[in-house]
Design a protein around this nucleic acid. Structure first.
Lengths: 211, 211
DNA sequence: GGCATATCGATATTCAGATATCGATATGCC
DNA sequence: GGCATATCGATATCTGAATATCGATATGCC
């Protein structure tokens, strides 16, 4: 194992995981790559290759043991050790993410939010504190936080990113519509809605023009 | 033109657009692929190839005319004609998107939200109506809405997707952590946070294990 | 126990996108 | 006007992911 899974394969893992957990609930013990692919609308080959990258528990004629496969995937994803994260930018989106507790399932725990505007600081409805951004570095270092979530306007995003990296963060989840740069070894994963909209919009304009 | 731009290139367009608009504001008239790449931290080649896919206005020694380039990109993306959209699932995320008015800039206008739960229906703080899901099809057909946004739980996502397609939607923006299927010609763009988290988490577990 | 079959794993092949190379062209200086 | 240079566009190579092919192996029936 440990053959560095491709990004795309990694991104499909949560889907497998969710399907497998459903199967486990309903008491299914074995599952084949073929049945998974049929249920998810993917091609069998891809499922098999993805699973091969994280597990070697597949047996011909039988398939995979559901419970084992779940553990293998979770291990590959690192969901076992819950990761603490900080969030910077307590605007609308920031607060929505802060209040959303579904991330725990994926091993993510937001411990605190930060904002440059002191008027929004204080306790949030979610129970998580919103702190002045000056306290960011200290808290990250004290709690050994390695994940930072950016929900500030685009213009401030790069500065916040630098600040996070300086505080010891090695994985950044960026929701600002900006292209961020950081040294090697720092992973930046952008949730760029503008980029998605570009794809949708382009598809639509091609589609409509054909009508 | 019209050489079907690659998805990845499309997704980079909003970044270019935002940079270019900044330049236009500040009165810059010409811009070269090299300077763009430097400012965004990309490689020059890629910028040139991306721009070549949407514009032929580049002149040696001079570069591109900022204003023309903006128009070319917007034309390729179809931002000129504002697209109406409906949103299904007026939960936390749904309401946040509904209230966010920044999408207009990208040519997207959410006209109404729908929910299966009648108790959340009515007027929203945003001024957009939240309607019972039974009215979805009629409204889509009447207003010729072609974009649907899904913010329901994963278990309901596929059903909602089918319903949208049946109502005439050809581009689906999916925020549910589920893999959706639809006929050819229907574009499904998923904003899968779980997938992103998988990448972050995996990076982190590899990183930490090395320490 | 042997054979048919479901299913996996390993090894090609193909494809799309990213990167590199090189020639072409417009500008500006001498 | 001619030459140096910035910058573009076209073509070629490389890389990584998706897809296809085929042999290997475990099960269960006869």
């Amino acid at each position: 194992m440990e053959p560095t899974i491709s990004i795309q394969a990694l991104q499909r893992m949560p889907t497998y995981l969710s399907l497998l957990k459903g199967k486990r609930e309903s008491g299914t013990v074995y599952v084949s790559a073929g049945s998974i692919s049929a249920e998810l609308g993917l091609v069998e080959i891809q499922v098999r290759k993805d699973l091969a990258a994280v597990s070697d528990g597949g047996r011909p004629k039988v398939g995979y043991v559901v419970a084992d496969l779940i553990l293998d995937i979770e291990k590959a994803l690192g969901y076992n050790n819950i990761n603490d994260a900080v969030l910077v930018g307590a605007g609308k989106l920031g607060k929505a993410l802060l209040a959303y507790d579904g991330f725990r399932e994926y091993g993510l725990n937001i411990v605190a939010a930060f904002d440059a505007d002191p008027s929004v600081c204080g306790a949030d409805g979610s129970g998580k504190p919103i702190l002045p951004v000056e306290k960011l570095k200290k808290l990250c270092q004290r709690l050994k936080v390695h994940i930072g979530i950016i929900t500030v306007p685009a213009s401030a995003a790069q500065a916040v990113c630098d600040m996070l990296v300086d505080s010891g963060v090695v994985a950044v989840w960026n929701f600002a519509p900006a292209h961020l740069r950081a040294n090697d070894g720092i992973l930046i994963k952008s949730e760029n809605m503008a980029a998605s909209l570009a794809v949708l919009s382009n598809h639509l304009s091609e589609k409509i023009s054909k009508i």
